[in-house]
């Protein structure tokens, strides 16, 4: 693999890893506080899967980079401007409906992505995707089912998820952005074309929104910046909490 391609793949893998980690972290905030016991266990399951994906992806990113950074070095010793996650996943939990909308918009993207990454010409990435896709298929069913329940539940639940959908929709454009580096990865058959992903994602999302009796928001201005390290104010607090121990005791191993 050429150095440029390797660097592009490092950036791509890091972005996926950060996105999984930050979303897994957000979901883990629910543990012990969900609306019912079964759902507490289910959300924690998804959180566990996502942190598991993050570990594989960050480990691989560290190997591609070749500077000796492992999963923990990458997770715990980078500041906000070095994080590459989508802005969508760093948005705070607010209520359960907001959490479900955020999750579904992400899951519908992740399942389409991992299905395609299984055929990547990069065998490590294909291997990670093959593992992740089984879990992500369950995630999208879980969040999609809840979105339908809440959208087509009571007036209160409908209003809550409709509001969350409106708030979060502007963060969905970023998932399909493409730049030169990604273009090269697409050309090499390493990653799927974001345009294909967008079409598949849109079809999936529209079908569930219809079942949920929710209107699809218009594609207006889209918030961007996550892939360049330009984040919302929320990520700093998330990292301050997550990174507290390794930052406070820099010489310690745990």
């Amino acid at each position: 693999m050429s150095t440029d391609l390797k660097e592009a793949l490092f950036g791509y893998t890091l972005r996926l890893g950060d996105t999984s980690l930050v979303l897994g972290h957000r979901l883990s905030e629910w543990c012990g506080h969900a609306p019912e016991l079964e759902e507490d266990i289910a959300l924690t399951n998804v959180a566990l899967d996502l942190v598991g994906h993050a570990r594989m992806l960050l480990t691989y990113a560290g190997e591609l980079e070749g500077k000796g950074r492992d999963e923990d070095r990458l997770a715990y010793r980078r500041d906000v401007f070095d994080y590459r996650n989508h802005l969508l996943v760093e948005q705070p939990n607010r209520d359960f409906g907001h959490t479900i909308v955020r999750q579904f918009l992400h899951d519908a993207w992740a399942v389409e992505l991992y299905e395609r990454l299984c055929a990547s010409t990069d065998t490590t990435l294909a291997g990670i995707a093959a593992k992740a896709v089984k879990e992500v298929r369950y995630h999208v069913r879980h969040s999609g089912d809840w979105l339908v329940r809440l959208g087509d539940g009571t007036d209160v639940s409908h209003a809550k998820v409709a509001d969350a959908l409106g708030r979060l929709w502007p963060y969905t454009g970023e998932m399909f952005e493409r730049d030169e580096a990604e273009q090269a990865l697409v050309a090499a058959g390493i990653v799927p074309d974001p345009a294909d992903l967008k079409a598949a994602w849109t079809a999936r999302v529209e079908a569930v929104l219809e079942d949920a009796t929710l209107d699809r928001p218009a594609d207006g201005w889209m918030q961007k910046g996550g892939r360049r390290g330009e984040h919302s104010e929320h990520l700093g607090y998330l990292l301050a909490e997550m990174q507290f121990l390794p930052r406070a005791y820099p010489d310690a191993t745990w």
């Binding site: 507490d40 924690t44 399951n45 993050a54 570990r55 960050l58 715990y76 390794p246 745990w254």
Partner: peptide, 24 residues
């Protein structure tokens, strides 16, 4: 659960999440 978001390594974070989930 108070320490899930502050576990000092990803391995510890996964172990703690799984443990608290087991309790549920």
């Amino acid at each position: 659960g108070n320490w899930i978001t502050r576990a000092p390594t990803l391995r510890r974070k996964v172990a703690l999440l799984a443990k608290v989930q087991d309790e549920g």
